[in-house]
Structure formats: structure tokens, C-alpha cells
Amino acid sequence: MAKTIEETQEYLGMWVTADGHVRQELLPNGRYDEARGALESAYQGRYRIDGDHIDYIDDTGFTADGEFRDGVLYHGGMIFYKENK
């Protein structure tokens, strides 16, 4: 039986748009830190994964969501790719 993304924690790490402008790090403690262009930590908050769905609640109370599909994160009209170091 295939493991879920929560079990494998494949979502952890840095996710980046193709142009590198938006960078979102999903941390193991359930927090995220998002940079935009030269602005580090433009958004920070909590996230929760359920299956392939991710819910975000930033520290100001704004909420958003996204989906993981075939190793790609779709969020807020943007497409993120996992950065492999």
C-alpha cells in the first residue's frame, strides 16, 4: 500500500516558482516561511496537510490552500517545484 504524503513528509523543504521569485519553505514544525523577490519572510504562518491538500493560515489570520499533484505544488494561482539540494 502506498504511503501518504503525511507519512513520507515529501512536502517538507523549499518550494520555488519557476522564475525563483516566490520561495516557500515548509518546515517540519508545521510552520512555513515565504519569501517574495528580495523580501525575505514576506509571509509566515502555519500549514496543515491532509492527503494532497494543504491549508495555510498566516500569522495575520489570512487563509489559503493548495494541492500537491505529481510532485508539484499548486497554490494561489502559482506553480511551485520542490528544490532539491
Rank of each mutant, 00 (worst) to 15 (best):
I5K: 07
G51D: 11
V22R: 04
D50P: 03
G61L: 12
R31D: 08
K82G: 02
Y81H: 15
I49E: 07
V72R: 03
H75D: 04
T4L: 04
K85P: 14
E25T: 04
Q9C: 07
D58M: 00
P28I: 07
A2D: 15
G45N: 03
M78Q: 12
Q44P: 10
N84D: 09
F80K: 03
L73S: 00
L39M: 10
G13H: 10
Y32W: 05
F68L: 02
G76K: 12
D59V: 11
N84R: 14
I79W: 00
L39C: 10
A18V: 08
D52W: 02
L27A: 10
D33W: 01
H75I: 04
H53E: 14
A42C: 13
R46L: 13
M78K: 14
W15N: 08
Q44M: 12
Y56M: 05
P28M: 09
G77C: 10
Y74W: 04
E34I: 04
H53L: 09
I57D: 06
E67T: 13
Y43I: 05
L27I: 06
L73W: 02
H53Q: 13
N84Y: 12
A35Y: 00
Y43H: 09
F62L: 14
T60V: 02
F62G: 15
H21D: 13
E7I: 12
M1H: 06
A64N: 08
H75E: 06
L26G: 02
D33G: 08
V72I: 15
T4I: 05
G61K: 05
P28V: 07
Y74E: 13
E40G: 11
T63H: 01
E10P: 01
D59A: 06
I57E: 11
E7Q: 14
Y43L: 05
G77Q: 03
M78C: 05
E10L: 07
P28K: 03
D65R: 09
A2W: 04
E40K: 11
E10R: 01
K3W: 07
I54W: 02
T63Q: 04
R31W: 13
T63R: 04
I79D: 01
G66S: 02
D19V: 14
E6R: 02
R69H: 12
F62C: 11
R23G: 07
L39Q: 12
P28F: 08
W15L: 12
Y43S: 15
Y11I: 08
Q9Y: 07
D58K: 01
Q44I: 15
E25P: 00
E34C: 11
T17R: 00
E7N: 06
E6I: 01
I49F: 04
M78W: 05
E34W: 00
Q44W: 00
R31V: 01
K3G: 12
A42D: 10
V72W: 06
V16N: 01
D50C: 04
G51V: 08
S41D: 12
E6T: 05
R69T: 15
E34Y: 03
Y47F: 15
I5L: 15
Y43G: 14
G45I: 00
G45S: 03
M14L: 14
M78Y: 07
N84L: 13
Y43R: 11
I49D: 03
K85H: 11
N29L: 08
H75A: 04
A18L: 13
